[in-house]
Structure formats: C-alpha cells, structure tokens
Computed example of a mutant assay.
Amino acid sequence: MTFGFAPSTATSAAASSVAADSVNRLARMLEPAEWASAGIPLLASPREVVSGLHSRHRPTPSTAVVAVLDHDERLTASASFVRRDTAAADGWEFRNALLAHLRRVVPHDLRRRTPVRTAVLLYCREGDERWTEEDGAWMWGLRDACTLHGLRCGAYITLTRGGWQVLGEGRGGRRPNALSAPPPLADVVAAPGPAPSRTGGGALDALRRTAAR
C-alpha cells in the first residue's frame, strides 16, 4: 500500500500561474526571423550612429540606449538607462521602460497618419553577438513602445566585448565594443571620412551641433 498527499489547491494554482507567466513572457519576444521579416528600415550609416551613441552615453553592460532619428537620420533625442532587474527578460517590462524614457525626451507623434521619426535601440550586454532571449524581449519592447509613441520601429543593435552588430541585418564591426573607451564626441565628429550624403550624414550633423554647445 502506498501513502501520499495530494497537492493542495493553492499549490496547483501557483504552479499554473508560473506556467502561464512563462508562456506569456515567451510570447513577448521576437526571434531573428520575425524581426528580419518585419520591414525594419536599414540604417544608412550604422557605424556613425553606433559611434555617436557610444561617445554620448558611454554604455557599460546592461545599459540600454534608445535614440530617435528624423527622416534624414539626424539624431533628435536619446536616453540611456541600466537594466537592474535580474529576473527573466520580459518584453512587457522592457516596453514600459523604453516608453517612459521616450516620453521624457521627445513628444509623441500619435497624431500623424504615418511615423516620420524612427527609434533605434543600442543594448550593451555580456556574451557574444548571437541572438538571446533577452534580445528578443528588447526587440518586442522596442516595437511596442514605438507603436504607442507614434514612432517607426528601427534597428536593434547589440554592443558586446567582440564589437557591435545590427541584429537581423548581419552588419557590424569590432569597434566600438563593450570594453573600448569612447573617444571624445568632438573626435568622432572630426574623424576623416566621405562627404556626408542626405541620409548618411544625418547623424554627424546632429553630433556637430551637440559638440559645438
């Protein structure tokens, strides 16, 4: 004869709640294939954008930098914050954090029929360039925050020890990286390069104005 105890109703309910939360959390993330098929606009000059945000915000691991670009890829506004919660990544939490910072630095465009500005996200983290569930949650959060703020969802960029990479595009570079010391903003602006075009030079124009202040 075997003796045992049936699980209590409270224990069963708690287990069901945890399972439901896990399912919901997994639903609030985007995989690379979903992101690549979402029609995310390509950055004309991703290295300029990454270098400019790196010099401006000096991100360390667990730092997120959200930036708003106009139609000429000029920087309109940006904000950075550190993810301090060590719990499992949840796109809903990331969406709320991104939306709160967007509201602080730039007014919404919800009255426009179509978005005219684009938000991009640079996230500095540990690990290599391969996609993680945390990346998927940030992608979901960025897309949802853009919708709620009337912005166009732009690139998601990771910054690791090995360099930077625009996920879903296959474009990246070794510098800047999570370990490199950012040069002064004025040095980034003065770096030699091709003459800026209508789309490619927008980030530099914004940086020049900032460096001159």
Rank of each mutant, 00 (worst) to 15 (best):
R175K: 11
R161Y: 07
L110S: 11
V65M: 00
R125G: 07
T86V: 14
T114P: 00
E129Q: 09
S180T: 06
H108T: 15
E126W: 09
T76Y: 06
G91P: 02
T158H: 02
L151Y: 10
T63K: 04
A97F: 00
L75W: 06
R83V: 12
R152T: 10
W92H: 06
G163H: 09
L148W: 10
D90V: 03
T86R: 14
N96T: 15
R152Q: 15
L75D: 05
A87S: 13
G170D: 07
R84M: 13
G173S: 08
G154I: 08
L159R: 03
R111P: 01
G127K: 00
R161M: 07
D85Y: 08
V116K: 12
L167S: 06
L69W: 06
R104M: 12
R171A: 15
S78H: 03
R112I: 10
D70T: 04
H149G: 13
D187A: 13
T63M: 10
V68Y: 12
L98S: 10
R84Q: 11
D72M: 06
G173L: 08
L75T: 07
A79S: 02
Q165T: 07
R117K: 13
H101G: 00
L185D: 02
L148Q: 13
A186Q: 07
R143N: 06
E169K: 00
D85E: 11
G172W: 10
E73W: 09
Q165F: 09
G127R: 00
C124S: 14
D144A: 11
A100F: 05
D72G: 13
E73P: 02
R111I: 08
E169H: 00
V106M: 02
R113T: 14
G91E: 03
P107S: 13
R84F: 10
D135S: 05
A64T: 01
G163M: 13
R130L: 14
W92M: 08
P115G: 15
E169T: 04
